[in-house]
Design a protein around this nucleic acid. Structure first.
Lengths: 191, 191
DNA sequence: CAAATTTTTGTCCTGTAGGTCAAGAAAGGA
DNA sequence: TCCTTTCTTGACCTACAGGACAAAAATTTG
């Protein structure tokens, strides 16, 4: 019927996500996106309407990856406190692993754009809700298992942990592993 | 001897700080800075070497303001838990008050630049240390007053609170007051 | 093979970022 | 009063952001 695409959309979105993640939205130019994805600027604008559209898709992709990771991580064996602490630690370790501290794309985006842009604000909210829901479920299960004090409100504690995670991913830009791990220990002490 | 400046440097820095705070570093142009400060672009570049230099000074100014606010706020009467909670609440309320959610300049800067720029990274660290020190002092005093459990490590808890604050100032971009206040309550429960 | 359709490449375009510079203006000193 | 010095204004400059578009290329259908 017509000439087929030479590239896979999802792969392009993945690479674009990396570029946005490392440099931020404003500081990533179409030229950089073309270089990062390996396709011409023209093809990019043909496949995706605009830089903003591509960014929106990259955010969705990030959401999907993050939601699955949380799911997997929280399904591991162990007490609630151990599992939750392990989840937070793995996030921090991922932050510290790379040569450049890119943090969390959702947090970066929230800081850079959510204050001005309601659509972005909603996207970030959705992502947070996914994590909060996963944490809530795991804590509720802990309560059923007798693993967590019945006084703990699963949803409330999950929101508190969400806030801790967001903090950690910013703090990871300027602090070392021991301090971050101490913070995690404090945060899960109530479980 | 020579023609004197028509403007006060500190006032210009204050207004520049506001512009950077609202729009971020990359997304604030020299033209905007000129408009925000009320002086010509040429004068700006005469008085300050570069956009970056002006930003550095704005950061210093922000640090000074923040440090004094923390000092004042934590010196208020009340139990340690009350005073600390009041401090966090006042930060959150400031975030929610404005028409545009600009968050915390230090956090914004950390997210936007600290990953790539070691100088910025150190500046952010300094600011965090000021807040951590103020919180540590207040908690230590609480322990002496018999107000705080002796098992609490002042410095460790201060670091944890610092992380909570950073989280809150990001979460304030996408969440409402009740949730943020619940998070604060959870965070001070260990005091 | 021709036609129709969609992609790719590369050129082109407008606006703005970030900054420079030359000219004139405002002070104090000789 | 004129000179020197520093400040201000505004024009100017180069590079790139973000995107539009035309022409050529690749595929399926008839």
């Amino acid at each position: 019927m017509a000439r087929p695409r030479k590239f896979d959309d999802d792969e392009v979105i993945d690479r674009a996500m990396d570029a946005f993640w490392t440099n931020g939205y404003f500081n990533t130019s179409p030229a950089q996106l073309a270089a990062a994805t390996g396709i011409g600027k023209g093809s990019l604008y043909n496949a995706f309407t605009s830089k903003r559209d591509l960014f929106d898709r990259a955010l969705s992709r990030y959401d999907a990856i993050g939601a699955e990771f949380a799911e997997q991580s929280l399904a591991k064996p162990g007490t609630t406190r151990e599992v939750v602490a392990g989840f937070l630690r793995s996030l921090v370790e991922a932050d510290l692993a790379g040569p450049v501290r890119r943090g969390c794309l959702a947090v970066n985006t929230s800081v850079e754009l959510a204050g001005q842009d309601p659509e972005i604000q909603r996207a970030v909210q959705r992502m947070q809700q996914h994590t909060i829901a996963a944490l809530t479920d795991r804590i509720a299960r802990g309560r059923r298992d007798g693993d967590v004090d019945p006084d703990v409100d699963p949803r409330g504690y999950a929101e508190f942990l969400m806030n801790t995670i967001v903090g950690l991913r910013v703090m990871a830009k300027t602090n070392d592993a021991p301090m971050l791990h101490r913070i995690i220990d404090s945060a899960v002490a109530g479980l």
